[in-house]
C-alpha cells in the first residue's frame, strides 16, 4: 500500500475544492529561441511528452 500524506496542510486547503500551487518567479530561459521551441519561457513549466515511462 502506498503511504498517503493525509495530514498535509489541512487548514490552508479546505476539502471539496481544487488547488494548483502558485508559481513563483524563478527567472526565465536565457535562450529565448529554445524557450520558443519548448513552448514556455518558464523552465519549471517545461513538461514534454515522451511516450515512455523512463524519462531521466
Amino acid at each position: 500500500m502506498q503511504d498517503y500524506k493525509f495530514d498535509e496542510f489541512p487548514d490552508k486547503f479546505p476539502v471539496a475544492m481544487a488547488y494548483v500551487p502558485w508559481q513563483r518567479f524563478n527567472g526565465i530561459y536565457d535562450d529565448l529561441e529554445k524557450a520558443y521551441r519548448i513552448g514556455t519561457i518558464f523552465p519549471e513549466l517545461n513538461k514534454p511528452f515522451t511516450g515512455r515511462r523512463c524519462t531521466s
Binding site: F25, G27, I28, L32, E33, A35, T40, I41, F42
Partner: peptide, 24 residues
C-alpha cells in the same frame, strides 16, 4: 519577432495572475 513576442505573451499571462511581481 516571433521569439520576442512569445516571451511577451508568456510574461503577460504570468502577470495576469501575479500583478505585483516586479521582476516579471
Amino acid at each position: 519577432i516571433g521569439i520576442v513576442s512569445f516571451a511577451v505573451v508568456d510574461l503577460a499571462l504570468y502577470l495576469d495572475t501575479h500583478p505585483t511581481d516586479r521582476a516579471a
